Simulated assay, not measured.
Amino acid sequence: MPDQLFSDLYHDTDRLTWAPVEEVRRRGRQRTRRTRVAGALAVAVAVGVLASGAAVLAGQRDATPPLPSATVVPTTPDADPTVSPTPPAESSPSHSAQSSGPPTSGAPSSRSPSRTIPAGATLQLADLPPGFTMSQGKGKGDWTLESATIYCENQLPALAVGVRSTRFAQFDSPTDWLVERVTRHSEADAVTSMKRMRRIVADCVPARPGDSLSILAEGLGGDDGVLVGGEIEGIPARWLFVRRGDLVAQLRLDHQTTPNEARQFAKLVADRLCAGTDAC
C-alpha cells in the first residue's frame, strides 16, 4: 500500500498544468536580469550619495575665509650714506623698551615731529669771525674723525649710531675753512655715538710712528662737548663734538684751536642745535 504522503501529493498535483521546459527557462532568465538591474541601481544610488557628501565637504572647505594679509610696515628714509647704520646688537635695552612701549601721556611737544634737521640748527655766518663766507658742500675731502680711523691698525666701531637725518654747513675764509655735520638720532643713540667717539680715540692703534688721536678737552657745552686732537701723516687736526638731545654735531676746526676757543665754538653750536630739538 502506498505511503499516505505520496498519495496526498499525487491527488494535489494530478490536475496541475505544467509549463513547458522552454517557458520555465525564459522566466528564469528574466528573473536573473531583474536581479542584476536592481543591484546596479543600488550601486549607482550609493555612489551618488557619496559624491554628494564629498561635494558638501568641499564646499565647506572653500567657504573658509582667507587668512588676513600681512601688515606692511612702511620703511623709513635711508640714512646718510656716509654714516654707518646701527647694527641690531648695538641697540640699548632702554632704547628698545622706549620704542616698543605704549605712548606716555603728557604735554605735547611744541615742535611737530620731523626727521629733517632745519638749516637754523647749524652754525650761521654771524657766529664766525670776519672774513668767512658760507659755501655749499660737505667739506673738502675726508675731514671727519671716521676718515682718520683708516690710519689705525685695529678694527674700530662705526662712530654714528641710528642716524635718521643729516645736514652739512661749510664756511670758507682766505686762510682756512670750517665744516659742520649735524646728525639726528634717538637720544639714546646720540649718547651712544658720543661714547663711540671716545672709544675710537682711546682704542686707535696708529699704523705709523708719530700718528696720534687724543681728547684735549671735555664738558665744553651742550649736553656733552668734546675737543679731539690728532696728527695723521704729520698733519695736525681738531674735531669738536657737541650733543644736544637727539642731535650730534661734528666740526672740523683749525688745527691750532685751543680748548678755550673750542669752548666758545661749542656754546654757539649748542645754542644753534636748539632750533632742531626739544631738548633745550
Rank of each mutant, 00 (worst) to 15 (best):
P2V: 07
D3S: 01
D3M: 05
S7P: 01
D8C: 10
Y10R: 10
H11W: 15
H11C: 15
D14N: 13
D14H: 10
D14I: 11
D14P: 08
L16Q: 07
T17K: 14
E22V: 09
E23V: 06
E23R: 12
R25V: 12
R27M: 14
Q30T: 12
T32Y: 14
T35D: 05
R36T: 10
V37P: 01
V37N: 04
G39I: 14
A40V: 09
L41W: 13
A46T: 12
V47K: 08
G48K: 10
G48D: 03
A55V: 15
A55G: 13
G59P: 01
R61T: 07
T64A: 13
L67S: 07
S69V: 10
T71F: 13
T75N: 05
D78P: 11
D78N: 12
T82H: 09
P85V: 08
T86N: 03
A89C: 07
A89Q: 15
E90G: 05
S91A: 11
H95D: 12
S96T: 11
P103Y: 05
P103V: 01
T104V: 07
G106N: 12
A107D: 11
P108E: 02
S110N: 14
S112L: 06
A119T: 10
A121D: 10
T122I: 02
L123R: 04
T133R: 06
S135Y: 06
G139H: 00
K140V: 08
G141P: 04
D142H: 08
D142S: 15
T144F: 04
L145G: 02
Y151A: 03
Y151M: 07
E153F: 13
E153W: 15
L156A: 10
A160C: 12
G162V: 01
G162F: 06
R164C: 00
R164P: 00
A169Y: 00
S173I: 05
P174D: 09
D176H: 07
L178A: 01
L178M: 03
R184W: 02
E187Y: 03
T192H: 07
R196G: 00
M197T: 11
R198N: 06
R199Q: 13
I200T: 07
A202W: 09
C204A: 06
A207G: 15
P209N: 08
G210T: 02
S212C: 10
S214C: 10
A217C: 01
E218K: 06
L220F: 03
D224E: 08
V228N: 01
E231V: 06
E231P: 05
A237N: 08
V242W: 00
R244S: 09
D246R: 05
R252S: 08
R252H: 11
D254I: 04
H255Q: 08
N260F: 02
E261G: 09
R263A: 05
L268P: 00
C274A: 12
A275K: 03
G276A: 13
D278Q: 10
A279T: 04
